[in-house]
Nucleic acid binder design. Structure first.
Length: 213
DNA sequence: CCCATTTCCCCCTTACATCA
DNA sequence: CTGATGTAAGGGGGAAATGG
């Protein structure tokens, strides 16, 4: 067949389309990946104006009939691409010029593509919004946990002070986590967070920076 | 191998039809 | 009447096939 895009070409076209799309959503990130295009401004030839007056030219831009559009839509649903054979068959079925059928498919693919882009945008936006929401929720949770930790440390200090006051023969005046039995954590609902205490004091991680660790 | 031609496609744009 | 919107079609330019 004379006209048949290679798989590579199709794939490249799709990648380029995606990059262009992403570069529009995220300027400055993806646009670096698009091959730089030299902007050459060429004057476009203006199209001849079609006279709307049917009586003078015999031509009048016509919308396709509902039946024609229905059949075209059915065919488009089957396959978005149009081979010559199918184009000619469809054209004779519809009483249209094969060129008109090709143009209709071209425009239909463009509509389909922009609809897809819009859907993809909405999906990304929804995902983004829910991620932001989750981020806020997690940040709130981190704050609450920090408060709990602070309270636990205060409580611990009071215990240590009391112990120091009653047992002067204590092996060491400096407190070590080794002497705290695991059940200590149970009271604060912090199971599994023991590692938090391994961090140096005042080195808590703010915001979402911990994600970078 | 090179080059011109043909055919098809995508993309952008324009002109026309229709409707609120 | 007018502006907005939808759509058929024009035209530029790229890619691939083909033939001389």
């Amino acid at each position: 067949m004379l006209r048949e895009m290679t798989t590579n070409m199709k794939a490249q076209t799709q990648v380029d389309d995606q990059l262009v799309l992403l570069s529009q959503y995220y300027p400055g990130i993806y646009d670096q990946l698009i091959p730089e295009q030299v902007e050459v401004v060429k004057p476009r030839r203006r199209r001849k104006k079609i006279k709307a007056d049917a009586s003078s030219t015999g031509f009048r831009k016509r919308k396709l009939s509902d039946e024609q559009v229905t059949l075209l839509e059915q065919n488009f649903g089957d396959e978005h691409k149009l081979e010559s054979e199918r184009k000619d068959r469809l054209a004779s079925e519809l009483g249209l010029d094969p060129r008109q059928v090709a143009v209709w498919f071209q425009n239909r693919r463009a509509r389909w593509k922009s609809k897809k882009i819009e859907e993809e945008y909405l999906k990304l936006k929804t995902d983004h919004d829910s991620t932001i929401l989750e981020k806020c929720r997690l940040e709130t949770e981190v704050l609450q946990l920090k408060e709990q930790l602070c309270e636990a440390e205060k409580k611990l200090n009071r215990l240590v002070e009391r112990l120091d006051g009653t047992t002067s023969t204590s092996p060491s005046s400096s407190f070590s986590m080794e002497y705290i039995e695991p059940p200590f954590f149970d009271g604060f609902g912090m199971e599994g967070l023991e590692n938090v205490f391994c961090m140096q004091e005042n080195s808590y991680i703010h915001g979402f920076d911990w994600l970078n660790i």
